[in-house]
Amino acid sequence: MNLFQKFGQHADLVSGMSDKLGVDWAEAFEAHPDLAARYRSAVLNCTHCQKTGECQGWQKGHAHADHAPDYCLNKGFLEDLAAES
């Protein structure tokens, strides 16, 4: 997998996890214009995860969740955003 494919895969995982937690990105970006840099950092952080397959399976098995799995490297960030939505 090349670098851009890896970034794309992890951007999809961050986006998917956000959806499951109920993050409203349009609202979040409006409230926090500097959030784009934090989103990029979350995607980069996700590329270090060793549980990509587990995360994909978890997302497929959850239409909605109140909390990200404990192994999620962006758990706190995404849950904080979801609480604001």
Rank of each mutant, 00 (worst) to 15 (best):
G16R: 00
E84S: 13
N74L: 06
T47L: 04
C72H: 05
L21R: 00
S18K: 03
E30W: 07
S41A: 14
F29C: 13
Q50L: 10
D19Y: 08
G53H: 07
A83E: 12
S15Q: 14
R40L: 14
K6L: 11
Y71E: 06
Y71M: 12
Q59K: 08
P69S: 05
D19S: 13
Y71D: 08
C46A: 08
A36W: 07
E30Y: 08
D80G: 14
K60I: 03
A63E: 11
A28M: 12
S15N: 15
G53R: 09
P69F: 04
A65W: 03
N45C: 05
F77Y: 13
T52N: 06
N74K: 06
M1L: 13
A82F: 06
A26N: 13
G57Q: 10
F29D: 09
L81V: 01
N2F: 05
C72E: 00
E79K: 08
E79Q: 07
D66W: 06
K51R: 15
F4Q: 14
E84D: 12
D66H: 09
L3V: 14
Q59E: 03
A26V: 11
Q5W: 11
D80P: 06
D34S: 14
P69D: 01
E27G: 13
A28L: 02
G57D: 12
D19Q: 15
M1Y: 09
D19A: 12
